Simulated scan of single mutants.
Amino acid sequence: MEIFAGFTAVQIAVALVAALGSAFIRGLTGFGMAILLVPVLALALPPVEAVLLTNALALMIGATEIRSLVRDAERSAWVIGALVVVTTPIGLYALSLTGKDAARLVIALIALSAFVAILLPKRGEGAPGRLATGGVGVLSGLMTGYAGMPGPPVVPFYAGRTLPRSIIKASMQLIFTIAASAGLASALWLGILRWQLLVFALVMLPMVIAGNRLGARVSGRVSDPAWRITVGLVLGGAALAAFVRLV
């Protein structure tokens, strides 16, 4: 039975629990909310609405932190974010031209490649070249349009380098905030963004804020090696989940 904005009690309950857990991972690692939240929400909501709801939440939580994100993010995050804005609509269009199985295969392969990349030896602090930075931006934008998940290309780009954790997290989260904006703008342009989803996101926002703050508090208490292991485990779990869905 519908009890709020066209959503049932079960849908709301699933969304709130998933929001709290995924936001905790975001606060702990700097990423993972979309990777974890979209598949869970898709169990209770249509996949498109799951992606859009996640984008709305990512934009809202990013907006609450925008000052620190702008202050701490590496300059390359702005370049990648700009490319995400340009290529997100292309990802949506590509998704409309391919079947679900093909899309799932692409997502699974990218998730696996991100997991493999995070296992490689750490690189120096210096930013990779323009080609690598541009490739991450394009791929992240395509992933945003394809599945609402900009993280797999971005995480190894930053977490695989010997940067301070504050810069890594701020750079990733700034890109994800920009990606969420691009996803919602594309959905509005395509006429598939329901106002009820935005209201639903506002209802879920306190859970996201609480989970994110708790995760950030825990993150400040763990060592850098333990933090990087956690990042690898989240990416590995995402890759495994992607292949399970494909099978």
Rank of each mutant, 00 (worst) to 15 (best):
V51F: 04
V79D: 07
L53P: 07
V85F: 12
S76V: 02
L92T: 15
V48F: 11
R67F: 12
M60A: 15
L69S: 07
L52Q: 01
L59D: 01
P46F: 08
N55R: 10
N55T: 13
R71F: 02
A44R: 05
P46G: 10
V79Q: 12
T87H: 10
T54F: 05
R67C: 12
L45C: 03
L92Y: 15
L69A: 06
A50Q: 04
A50H: 02
L41D: 06
L57F: 03
V51E: 06
V48I: 15
A50D: 05
E65S: 14
E65T: 14
L69Q: 04
M60D: 10
L59N: 08
V85W: 04
A82D: 03
P47W: 10
A73N: 06
E65W: 14
T88G: 06
P39A: 06
R71D: 01
T64C: 06
A42N: 10
V70I: 15
P47C: 08
M60C: 14
L57Y: 02
A50M: 01
I61A: 09
G62C: 01
T87Y: 14
L59Y: 07
L83F: 02
R71M: 04
I66L: 11
E49T: 11
P39I: 04
G91E: 07
P47H: 09
S76R: 06
V40P: 08
P47T: 08
V85K: 02
T64Y: 06
L69I: 02
P46I: 09
I61K: 08
V51K: 04
D72T: 05
G91R: 05
L53E: 02
V84L: 07
E74H: 13
N55I: 10
I90L: 10
L45I: 05
V48W: 11
I90F: 01
D72K: 02
V40K: 11
A42W: 10
W78F: 12
W78C: 03
A82G: 14
A82Y: 04
V79Y: 11
V79F: 11
L53Y: 09
P47S: 10
G81I: 03
L52D: 02
T54W: 07
L92I: 14
I90W: 07
A73V: 01
A94N: 01
V40E: 11
L69D: 07
G62M: 03
N55D: 14
V48C: 12
G91V: 09
A42T: 12
G81W: 00
S76W: 05
V84D: 02
L83I: 00
S68H: 11
A94H: 05
A94V: 12
S68E: 12
A42C: 12
G62A: 02
Y93L: 15
S76Q: 06
V70K: 04
L53C: 07
V84W: 01
A42G: 13
E74D: 15
I61V: 13
V86A: 12
R75W: 08
V40T: 15
M60Q: 12
